[in-house]
Amino acid sequence: MTKRVILAATLALAAGTAQAADMDMPGQLSWSAYDMGSTGYNQAVAIGSAMKSAYGTNLRLLPGKNDIARSEPLRQGKVDFTAAGIGGVYMAQEGVFEFGAERWGPQKVRVLLQNAGAKFGFALAVTKETCEKAGKPGCEGFTYSDLRGLKVGHIKGSPAINVAIEALLAYGGLTWDDVEAVDFGGYGDSWRGLADGNIDATYSSTTAGTAYEVEAGPRGLYWPPIDASDAAGIQRMQDVAPYFAPMTATDGAGLSADNGVGAASYPYPVLIAMEEQDADLVYKQTRAMVETFDAYKDAAPAADGWDIKAQNLEWLVPFHDGAIRYFKEAGIWTDAAQAHNDRMIARQDALAAAWEELQAEKPADWEAAWAEKRHAALAAGGFKPVF
């Protein structure tokens, strides 16, 4: 974002804050979010507290153990918004993995805001006991390749987490076939498995509340590093998860500005709505989060990543018209952002049309037919299929 755009945004936000009391916010809003104790849930609690103080709005949180559990109430209109990970945003849009099932299909989700500027990352958390099993006591020199033959958490109904794990294993030159996958019903369950010594590694953001708990426990916590200079490893990782980028995490369990670790990163959480959500409500929710930012940015780990100045307005999922309305008022929405947004909406339209065609065809092997139809539709529109 240019200095001119940042200045315009700062001036607009200052004016907007003075008018906050004049915004007619609903008495209650509802979000679905990750399990209690997760980074996303803790941030949602902090945001809800800030909105309660500023507007008297109660934020009702519906925790879900996996992407499907969080996406279902959004699709059914039982919640207004979802604080989602990449699964509930990108994979839902793409109609892949669990979202490729016949009862789901590509979803026309829209972004309000991203937590895109935080200093936390994503990694596979291990314990000192894990390192000992790999023959590296004290975790000296332990890396992803050392997970070979060990037990790794696999979350049912969470393609985002499982693909992320696959990508991190790929960085270490491994696949799911090289480890022992242990199924869990939810993200929090896998952390309890790690804490109890039932598994050797599980996926997490470095700031998850459960990570701090394990760090303080008898088994301790270690984050295997990702070396950004390892071009081959990074390529293997991005071949599986193209949205992953290497970074240095300095926020999280056992981490600090002076003690960071190489990790993977993408915006998390991302606040989303369905395409048909009322634009005025989306505008108010977006504006409220920006105007109360100072009240919640330090109230939960990594909550400062919701800063409007950190938004990637040319991302891989389109923004909602209500959010765009606010961005225009803030002076940060550009012609390039609009053109990109239109292109991403066209991608969603191409996927939706392909899905409707397939439903009319009623193929015997839905999974195979959808994979072929999806690739053909995206290629015809000049879009990269990715999955």
Rank of each mutant, 00 (worst) to 15 (best):
L74Y: 00
L74N: 02
L74V: 11
L74T: 08
R75F: 04
Q76R: 15
G77W: 02
K78L: 13
K78M: 12
K78T: 13
K78G: 07
V79P: 06
V79H: 08
D80S: 07
F81T: 00
F81Y: 06
A83P: 10
A84G: 14
A84Y: 06
G85R: 00
G85T: 12
I86C: 05
G87V: 10
G88S: 12
G88I: 10
V89E: 15
Y90K: 12
Y90H: 14
Y90F: 15
Y90V: 08
A92D: 04
A92G: 02
A92Y: 02
Q93C: 10
Q93N: 14
E94F: 05
E94G: 04
E94H: 09
V96W: 02
V96A: 06
F97T: 13
F97H: 13
F97M: 14
E98I: 08
F99D: 09
F99I: 12
F99N: 08
G100R: 03
A101W: 11
A101T: 13
A101C: 06
E102K: 15
E102S: 15
R103G: 12
R103V: 10
R103A: 14
W104K: 03
W104S: 12
G105H: 13
G105K: 12
G105L: 11
P106A: 03
P106S: 05
Q107W: 06
Q107G: 02
K108C: 10
V109A: 10
V109R: 03
V109C: 06
V109M: 11
V111S: 04
V111Y: 01
V111F: 03
L112A: 07
L112I: 13
L113I: 05
L113P: 02
N115Y: 01
A116N: 15
A116K: 07
G117C: 03
G117S: 03
K119A: 12
K119L: 14
F122D: 11
F122R: 09
F122Q: 11
F122S: 06
F122P: 04
F122C: 06
A123L: 06
L124E: 02
L124N: 01
L124S: 00
L124H: 03
A125L: 03
V126T: 06
T127L: 07
T127K: 03
T127G: 05
K128P: 01
E129Y: 09
E129M: 10
T130R: 09
T130G: 08
T130N: 10
